Amino acid sequence: MSSHALPLGMYAWPKNGLQEKKRDMLYNRDFLLLHYPKTADKSVAVYFCQNFEKPIYGRVSQGQVAEIGMGPDEGVELEVAGSHDNYAAATKVLKEKDIDITALRALLLPVRNPYDLVVSNYFFLRASYEKSPSVRNRPNFQLAARSTFPEFCAQSNMADFANFMPPAADSATLPVELIHFENLAGSQSAILKKYGMQESYPLPHLNSSKRPRNIASMYDEASKLHVDQKMDSMFRIGGYEKIL
């Protein structure tokens, strides 16, 4: 699936926001994969490295290096980096490597129903706070651990997904392919087929989150309104209705 681009504004990662982590930026000579938090980044990153043409380069967290499990001998060169790579950051990184981002065949962006995404993130942060002392000084983990879900929705600043999209000046030449979390395998298989590639490895399912399956039960009217407003760009770009 493709989406129309939106104007780009520089993005600042919030102090109390979605999962504070290093986001995937993977690319080869034809494709760039960027990740918004909690959109199956591990599974999609491994799938990209297994199925897309080598060499593949990336900026990932230390943990992701182990999860991907591939190195230079397999044509995958990964850099451990702590930046939060949206479209502006990716453009800068690629420019430093003499790569014109608009000359790529496509930008790949995973998306997820925002109501489900925020619930998943809330439980991830709470679980991480309990089991990992190293994250307990981070404001967003503290917020989730000490708040009810409605309080979390009210106080958490959420990254604007529009900042992962190309600006209007680039959108005419750089197609965007959305990878829907709700159909990860199908979305990615369709992208490979569309661009004349074959799927060599199936989608792995890594670190599925533990959360209530009835996400509607987590929301009251106020918390739904917070998510509707703060995640508006993902609703709009991903084609999700604001209905629980």
Rank of each mutant, 00 (worst) to 15 (best):
P166M: 00
A172G: 14
Y87G: 00
V119D: 05
Q62R: 13
S128Y: 01
R211A: 15
N183D: 10
I243D: 15
E241A: 08
G63V: 05
S208V: 15
P167T: 00
L178Q: 05
K97D: 07
Q62G: 12
V176A: 00
G58A: 14
L143Y: 01
I101H: 01
E241Q: 03
S171L: 00
L26R: 03
A88Y: 02
P133V: 09
E241V: 11
K42Y: 06
S217W: 09
F123K: 05
S128V: 04
A145Y: 10
L203T: 12
V60P: 04
A66T: 09
A145T: 12
L244R: 01
M25D: 04
I237K: 08
S209N: 02
H226I: 10
P202M: 10
H205V: 15
A169V: 04
L192P: 02
G239F: 02
E96L: 10
A145S: 14
A81K: 08
V60G: 10
A190I: 04
F181Y: 05
G71Q: 10
S120P: 01
E79S: 09
Y219H: 09
M197H: 00
S83A: 05
M25G: 04
N163M: 03
I215L: 13
S132P: 06
V76C: 09
P7M: 09
L18M: 09
A222C: 03
G17K: 01
R146P: 08
Y219L: 15
N183Y: 02
F149S: 12
I99P: 03
E20Y: 06
A159W: 07
F52M: 05
M165V: 01
Y87D: 02
N157D: 12
P37K: 06
G196C: 09
N140Y: 06
P175H: 02
R23D: 10
V93F: 08
F149Y: 06
L174M: 03
K210S: 15
P110E: 06
C49D: 09
G238C: 06
E241L: 13
L225N: 13
S208A: 15
A106H: 03
A5C: 08
S134P: 10
L78N: 07
Q19D: 11
L8E: 10
G75D: 03
V176G: 00
F52T: 03
P114Q: 14
I237R: 09
V118C: 12
N86P: 09
A185H: 03
Q155N: 05
A12K: 08
P72G: 07
W13A: 14
E20V: 04
F52E: 02
M10T: 13
S128T: 11
P37F: 06
L206Q: 02
F152A: 14
H205F: 07
E199V: 09
A159Q: 13
S83V: 03
P139D: 10
I101E: 01
S187K: 05
L225Q: 14
E67A: 05
Y240L: 12
V65P: 01
P175S: 11
M10G: 11
P110N: 11
A144G: 07
L8P: 12
A90E: 08
P72E: 02
V93K: 01
E130T: 15
Q142H: 13
E241K: 03
I237Q: 04
F235T: 14
H4R: 02
K95M: 08
E241I: 12
